[in-house]
Design a protein around this nucleic acid. Structure first.
Lengths: 110, 110
DNA sequence: CGGGATCCTGCCTGATACTG
DNA sequence: CAGTATCAGGCAGGATCCCG
């Protein structure tokens, strides 16, 4: 069967629709290290605007990838962490990590 | 000032810089099935413009992910296939495929 | 058939200011 | 601290034409 037939159900396409955004991978990478606060993410992802970060986090929350926990304190305290579904992305990140490590900048295998 | 984070050498970031484009994953997915011609890719990736396809292919070629083989015929015949480096991306695609397959549209685990 | 050249559009994104 | 509101801009991508 030709792969050209029907891409709507292509699992890779589905995956990319969920985590394919420009910042999404980097946000998730951070959260993989442990629960992150908004400000922590903003500082870590130097250059991301609060607006964009907020949008991406909301997206990920709606996709069930991360969960948002609010601690009712003053000052406010919000933590983003991975859901089960989010944690199941781990093999993808591991594969990317390994690939990124195994080739240097010039594209030569280490 | 581009976004420099304290993750400059993060392998995930490096990987995304190479294959993180909007169409890049889908182009590579097709080539993983076997060498592809320009027209085949264009038909398969419904909606991609020749301009964009051309740009992405050139990028991937410069990154050493795919190779471009020209058969001197009339009509012209060009084939894109994976280099060794491109093939080494396979685990990433496998992980994404598996993830995309294991969750349905509603985010429920199958 | 495989693209390059051109022009154009729109979405994503950034910057900044502001608030509970 | 954790965001929203508003405004504006760039750049990836689309549409089209054309040529080797």
């Amino acid at each position: 069967m030709s792969h050209e037939s029907n891409h709507q159900n292509c699992p890779i396409e589905k995956t990319m629709n969920v985590i394919g955004g420009k910042w999404t991978f980097l946000i998730l990478r951070d959260i993989f290290y442990g629960p992150q606060r908004f400000g922590e993410l903003q500082r870590s992802l130097r250059g991301i605007s609060p607006r964009t970060l907020s949008l991406r986090l909301k997206e990920l929350e709606e996709e069930g990838i991360i969960s948002r926990v609010i601690y009712s304190e003053i000052p406010p305290h919000v933590e983003y962490s991975l859901t089960k579904r989010g944690q199941s992305l781990h093999p993808i990140f591991e594969a990317m990590k390994e690939w990124g490590n195994s080739w240097d900048v010039l594209g030569q295998k280490k």
